[in-house]
Amino acid sequence: MSEKKIRVLVAKPGLDGHDRGAKVVARAFRDAGFEVIYTGLRQTPEQIVAAVIQEDVDVLAMSILSGAHNTLFPKVTQLLKEKGVNDVLVVGGGVIPEEDIPFLKENGIEEVFTPGTNTQDTIEFIKGHLKR
């Protein structure tokens, strides 16, 4: 018999050229027993939000390398709010300068994981901060 599983959407908004890092994270999540919905490169915020809703995920994990995090992450959280989605834990990762983190947190990104973060810490954070 199955029980409730943690479902995570791993998404890459923007125009990044590769998704090696996101794939590593996706695998770590799987190994932690999560059900990972992986959507690949170059997602628009609209696509991400549609997938969050159709897949009914508990967590949205986004990663950006290109530097567009300050526009794209808040765009996604804004769209989620407009759609009335308020019980999904949103986290971000990628190449993100320290000084941008407070702004992202103000905009609905609950935690930001920069390169070098142990994926185990990310997993523990998620388990401890689920919103439903």
Partner: peptide, 13 residues
């Protein structure tokens, strides 16, 4: 592990 990577949406963006 009971986990899974569900990747079919990649082709249906």
């Amino acid at each position: 592990t009971g986990g899974a990577i569900l990747g079919d949406r990649i082709r249906m963006q």
